[in-house]
Simulated scan of single mutants.
Amino acid sequence: MSTQQTIDVEYRGGMSVAALIEGRAIVTDQPVKDGGQDAAPSPFDLFLAALATCAGLYAQRFCESRSLSTEGLGLRVTCTYADKGFHVEAMDFALTLPEGFPEKYRDALLRAVDLCTVKKHIVTPPRFSVRIAE
């Protein structure tokens, strides 16, 4: 049997929109050039941040599950955009390893980061439907 999660969207004035999830509000806005106040990340920024933080979490969990230090562990995600339109063509995830990180775990760490749940949803997308609520 499937389970469900509901996300309600609340309009906050101007270009600010919030997603209400399990009692928490995730607020978004648009840059000034797009009519917003730039008071919060845009929805697309949150999308990219979800990919980055998910990958970072998988790296952290990998290290902690093996009692490896996470001091100095870092991740930088570089997005390359298409020349025309607003589309990310490539994302490069570059991990910085803690000092003394064991060589034997390097490939396994990369495989672990590649398992990020957010990325999996892009590779195998869900079905989308848009409708007028009754």
Rank of each mutant, 00 (worst) to 15 (best):
Phe47Tyr: 12
Arg12Gly: 04
Val118Lys: 01
Leu97Arg: 03
Glu99Ala: 15
Val123Ala: 15
Thr28His: 04
Ser16Gln: 14
Leu51Glu: 06
Ser42Glu: 12
Leu110Ala: 07
Ala59Asp: 05
His87Phe: 13
Pro43Gly: 14
Gln4Leu: 12
Gln30Lys: 14
Phe101Asp: 06
Arg12Ile: 02
Thr53Met: 13
Val123Phe: 03
Gln4Asp: 15
Pro125Leu: 10
Leu97Glu: 05
Asp45Cys: 08
Ala90Glu: 14
Asp34Thr: 05
Ala82Ser: 14
Thr70Phe: 02
Lys33Gln: 14
Ala25Gln: 10
Val113Ala: 10
Arg24Ala: 11
Ala112Phe: 03
Thr78Asp: 11
Val88Asn: 04
Ala108Glu: 15
Ile21Ala: 12
Ile7Glu: 10
Val9Lys: 08
Arg66His: 13
Gln30Asp: 13
Lys33Ala: 15
Phe86Asn: 12
Ala49Leu: 14
Pro126Glu: 04
Phe93Arg: 00
Val113Pro: 04
Ala25Ser: 09
Ser129His: 09
Gly72Ala: 10
Leu75His: 03
His87Val: 13
Pro98Tyr: 04
Ile132Tyr: 00
Pro98Trp: 05
Leu115Arg: 14
Ile7Asn: 11
Gly14Asn: 13
Lys104Cys: 02
Ile122Ser: 01
Arg61Leu: 07
Ala59Phe: 01
Val9Asn: 14
Thr28Cys: 11
Ser67Thr: 05
Leu95Glu: 12
Val113Asn: 05
Ile26Asp: 00
Lys84Asn: 11
Gln60Val: 08
Met1Ala: 11
Thr124Ser: 11
Leu46Tyr: 10
Gly74Thr: 02
Val130Phe: 15
His87Trp: 09
Ala18Tyr: 00
Thr6Met: 10
Leu110Glu: 06
